[in-house]
Structures are given as structure tokens and as C-alpha cells.
């Protein structure tokens, strides 16, 4: 058994149908004391699609991801994730939903007392009954996927910033999640390293069929992820190439401004927008 199913956690199994919404926010509001973080935020993310949240610092982008995971509760509005209303769930029920999700945190949030391998296999070691040799096999597999197999026994402190992000991606994908959330995955990285992270996100989306929600203010990376696709080459190696029209249309952009959705649309819509705020952001 890979890990406990939703049914074993006492939850109905209502995983979304292909291209049905896996995430649905309906008029979600959140404030900390007097400060409004999100105001009437409504959007949906469809299975296999990519949703990219843009916005200035403090616009509420990371909060959206934390609400999806149930790390925060909204003041009002409803949040559906993988067919479950997470805004009404308690922590125990949320654990069941989280088993089908992964999150890549800003700066990676790797456990600094564990090795790279232990970090990647954490969920499988601690929260499943999977035999140890199978866990080790999966850890090697995902580390190979992100090109870090040789670092399995190193401490996170021995890795570069880019490598730590890739380990965080490997950790998030180890338990084969349905939905992956990325919180500023390329912030603070040089352009070349950022491209390798973007490639990992594209590979996971297209080769592992993972729905992606990305929070970033790096426009270059956002456009790269939305306009490229991954496929297997003749030798089985992943190839990144310009995406077909249909694939590009599966990536949506959401611009948050002062806690509200200021823009929602495709990469082309965003580029074509004459809105002064968007123009400032794009310039």
C-alpha cells in the first residue's frame, strides 16, 4: 500500500474527474486583525492544468496556498480541494486530503537534521507502511528525476540554494501527489538555476500528470512554465519544448492586488492587457 487512502481516513473518495476542478475557491475572505489579506477571492483550478498566481509582496499569494492546504482557515467563503471542503475540516481530516497534495515551500523548508534522502522519503518513512527498501527505491527514483541522485546522503546545508529547491520538489512529489503547490519556487535563484526548477515543474505536470498551482513574482519563470511542455524522447529521457496551443491554454494566470483578484486569464491575455497596473508589473 502506498499510503492511506481518503476512505481510510473516514472521508468520501470524490477525487475529481479529468479536467474537473480540483481546487475551488468561492468568495474567500481572510483578515489578520485589521489587515485584510484576501477579499472575495473566487477561482478554480482544473485537473492537469497550471494556475499561476502573480502579485507584489504581501498581495496574499502564499496565503492562497496555505488555505488550500488547510494550514489557515478563511474568515468566510468556501474552499474545495480534491472534492473535499477543507475550510470545514479538522486537522485529522485534513491529513487525509494532504496525503494527496504536495507543497514546495519558499526556501525549501527542508528538515535540517535529516539527510537529503531522509527529507525526500520523510512522508513514506513516517506516514506509510511501505517497506523500507521500496521507500529507498522511490527516494532514489525521485532524486534521479530532479538530477540529485548523488546527493542522497548529504545534509541540506551542504547543498546550493537551487539544489535545496530541487530536493524540496523531490520531497513534495515522493508520495505521488495529485496536486502540487509551489510557493515562490525560483525566488532568489540565478536565471540558469531557475530554468532547471521550471523544467522540473513542467516535467512533473506533463509526465506525472500533477496539477500545479504556482505562486511567483518571477514573470520570466511563469511564462516559461506556461509556454513549454515536457515529453519523453526516443531514449526515454524527458525533453522540454515549446508547448502546443492546447497545452498553453491549460495555464491560467491570476494577478492578486491588495488581496483581490485584479486579473485572470491566459498568458496571451496578460501580455495583451492595457491595464496600467499589469503594464507596470510586466515592464
Amino acid at each position: 500500500m502506498r499510503h492511506k487512502s481518503l476512505a481510510e481516513f473516514g472521508l468520501p473518495v470524490e477525487l475529481a474527474q479529468p479536467h474537473a476542478p480540483v481546487v475551488l475557491f468561492d468568495k474567500v475572505c481572510l483578515a489578520f486583525d485589521e489587515k485584510v489579506i484576501l477579499r472575495d477571492v473566487t477561482f478554480e483550478v482544473r485537473a492537469g492544468h497550471t494556475k499561476i498566481f502573480l502579485g507584489a509582496s504581501g498581495a496574499g499569494k502564499s496565503t492562497v496556498l496555505k488555505l488550500m492546504l488547510g494550514l489557515l482557515k478563511p474568515d468566510s467563503g468556501t474552499i474545495w480541494v480534491l472534492g473535499h471542503r477543507v475550510d470545514q475540516m479538522d486537522e485529522v481530516q485534513l491529513m487525509g486530503v494532504r496525503h494527496h497534495m504536495g507543497m514546495v515551500f519558499q526556501e525549501g523548508a527542508l528538515f535540517d537534521s535529516f539527510t537529503v534522502g531522509e527529507n525526500v522519503g520523510y512522508k513514506l518513512y513516517e506516514e506509510t507502511t511501505q517497506p523500507l527498501h521500496e521507500v529507498r527505491q522511490r527516494v532514489e527514483e525521485v532524486l534521479g528525476f530532479v538530477g540529485l541522485s548523488e546527493h542522497i546522503d548529504k545534509q541540506p546545508s551542504e547543498l546550493s540554494g537551487g539544489q535545496r529547491r530541487r530536493v524540496a520538489i523531490a520531497r513534495a512529489m515522493a508520495a505521488k501527489p495529485t496536486l502540487l503547490l509551489y510557493d515562490e519556487p525560483t525566488t532568489g535563484l540565478d536565471p540558469i538555476t531557475s530554468l532547471t526548477i521550471d523544467a522540473e515543474i513542467i516535467k512533473l505536470r506533463d509526465l506525472e500528470a500533477v496539477t500545479s498551482v504556482i505562486v511567483t513574482h518571477q514573470l520570466r519563470d511563469a511564462f516559461y512554465v506556461s509556454t513549454h511542455q515536457a515529453s519523453r524522447g526516443p531514449d526515454g529521457e524527458p525533453l522540454i519544448s515549446a508547448a502546443a496551443e492546447a497545452k498553453v491554454s491549460q495555464a491560467d494566470f491570476v494577478m492578486l492586488k491588495d488581496g483581490s483578484i485584479h486579473f485572470e486569464g491566459s498568458a496571451d491575455d496578460l501580455r495583451a492587457s492595457t491595464d496600467p497596473y499589469l503594464q507596470t508589473f510586466l515592464s
Binding site: 494532504r98 504536495g102 519558499q106 526556501e107 528538515f111 535540517d112
Partner: peptide
């Protein structure tokens, strides 16, 4: 460093 949030996200209380 968000390691506690990461624990929760990984399904650990």
C-alpha cells in the same frame, strides 16, 4: 523556516 508548516503539509501532526 516553515519546517513546521512543511511537516503539516506532509501529513504529520
Amino acid at each position: 523556516t516553515e519546517q513546521i508548516s512543511a511537516l503539516r503539509a506532509l501529513g504529520t501532526d
